[in-house]
Design a binder for these strands. Sequence first.
DNA 1: AGAAGCGGCGCC
DNA 2: AAAGGGCGCCGCTTCT
Length: 547
Amino acid sequence: MLVALVPEADGAGRWQKLHDDGTPAGPAMAATSLASAVASLERAHKPRWIWADTSEVYPPLLAAGVRVDRCWDLHLTEALLLGADGRHREPKELAAAVARELNLPAPADVGPRKKDVELTLFGPDPVVLPGNTDELDALAMVFRAQQRNPALGLLIVAESASALVAAEMTFHGLPWREDVHNAILEEMLGPRTAPGVRPKVLQALADQIREAFGGKEINPDAPASIVRAFAREGIDVPSARRWVLKKIDHPAVEPLLEYKERARLWVAHGWTWLDAWVHDGRFRPDYVVGGVVSGRWASRGGAALQIPRLMRKAVLADDGWCLVAADASQLEPRILAALSGDQRLIEVCGDDDLYSALAEDSFKGERPRAKIAMLSAMYGGTSGEAGPLLAVLRKRFPQAVGYVEAAAQAGEQGRMVRTRLGRTSPSPSDAWRELTGGADDSGEVSSSSRQAARNWGRFTRNFVVQGSAADWTAALLGVLRNRLPANAHLVFFQHDEVLVHCPREDADAAIEAIAAAGREATRLLFGETSVRFPMNAVPVDCYADAK
DNA sequence: AGAAGCGGCGCC
DNA sequence: AAAGGGCGCCGCTTCT
């Protein structure tokens, strides 16, 4: 069963049952408490909820204690459908345009709409909804229009489930111990200072750096200042990047590197971050499902997907609870094996450490070289020894390497590529087409043209692998959230790893659910493939103890 | 004064 | 040892 749902002010709302084809299956109903209406419908029918935007509709329901099983997110779906038609939209433009179509208020943060945004979005034959259309009717109409590409069905369902997971993660929050975080900061920086006031340890390092440059003024926070300071000493450096500085023999280098590391901690995850993002022992970032073109999640605020390893010490389970940390090991090369059907690579995937097996097979047991070769194939690396290593890989695994090289070629020619579940790469810009349009008057293809083509080829090469891996994790999340024990909560997700917070006695059940979800995700994407996708799942008290 | 771009670095 | 793909976010600098 389907139920379309429109929230209204003060926790009220309206809903309407729909048939599977999106036609009305009952009258429109009004509820003064939307949450109780949803709860009772959920108990009775476990419907698939049709709503405009999970990130708007679901959090208030969660806050009222209501969890739902399934949904269909019209925003996310429309983005997938448009992308598949080669009509990508910026998320903000899409949100504004869909809101307009649905006669809903536009998101508050949407600025002036650009002129060239289409006002009619839906389907090959755009539907223009009159301004006075009932919102429930509009939802149903859009839902029906969104059945236009059945090939995307699984992706849409997985994406919508991901949106439920994202809202639930924000709701539960990642356990975060402020006292532990503060202790780390104190150890690395010294006592807390007011915002903008350089902590003692950083000031001491800055003084040391200035001494090393003969007392001349230098701002270690400004890369240009660092480059100038070295130039005064007769040392030319192209930039102030860490790996550049590391190669220099100069007394300022050590304190500079030390300063950079600690300053980064102060600025990105210092006391200001703690005040802004951690409350009542929980870190609650906003996750942006589908925020990356490849289908990976992004986050908004709090740099949720860039938590430094050091700070994971502050992620501690509640008393009597534990964190089950699980990651899909070496996910992307396994995805490539399954996508390409390369039998030899599939055999290599039989090993828990894929790179060791690859090294044994083709690289004289040299694991680092095997890894460089594989990463170069997936990322389009060319520098250093990548070329020869890739040649070895191509000879031994022609199907796998051929798969990514075909994707690269498609990109270089300006064609779109698709992930396993049908997420589609954006088209290159008009400027790109202009630049790569062909030979100039003299018949030469300019180097900037070739470079632009290669750059886009690297993007599409990686897109098929990174995006299909995102397909796989979306399927995993969707399956997992309905398999976990009732008290076990998904509290973190980062590309290929999840954290589950649960009572200790539920840890084994959570681990089993994760393993089962991994198997199911593999089956949903690839059917009865023999590629192995091992999940490492371990119960820990502290996130830093995983791996 | 505020926006935009850049360099840099955290994560996968 | 870095590089090759994807991000978010900071401070600094330059532009408007």
